[in-house]
């Protein structure tokens, strides 16, 4: 069990690190948005699953499901808001 939790924590923080590396390496805003939307929310998903397996209590599971659903609903929406406002500015 501890091994599974360790792997989940390590890979979650590694995916968040990857998304930060992507925001440095990509060349324009839209490509950077790909990296911040996908990789960072996947890393948070892995971290949250690891944390809830570590505590193994009902209220932690409920909060974990809440945060996961919220993050996966809102990460594309935030990217959409930024990209739309950038595009409106770009058109002028």
């Amino acid at each position: 069990m501890e091994i599974i939790i360790s792997i989940l924590l390590l890979s979650g923080s590694f995916f968040i690190f990857l998304s930060a590396l992507g925001i440095i390496r990509f060349k324009d805003l839209y490509s950077r948005m790909h990296s911040t939307t996908k990789a960072s929310s996947f890393g948070l998903l892995l971290l949250l699953v690891g944390v809830s397996l570590f505590f193994n209590e009902l209220n932690v599971y409920v909060k974990t499901i809440l945060v996961v659903v919220f993050i996966y609903l809102t990460a594309p929406l935030a990217a959409h808001a930024i990209a739309k406002s950038y595009r409106e500015k770009d058109k002028e």
């Binding site: 594309p76 959409h80 990209a83």
Partner: peptide, 15 residues
């Protein structure tokens, strides 16, 4: 649909 497109490989819904 837009949520799913944002999460599929290499595509991001903009507008």
């Amino acid at each position: 649909l837009s949520n799913l497109i944002s999460m599929t490989p290499g595509t991001l819904s903009i507008d």
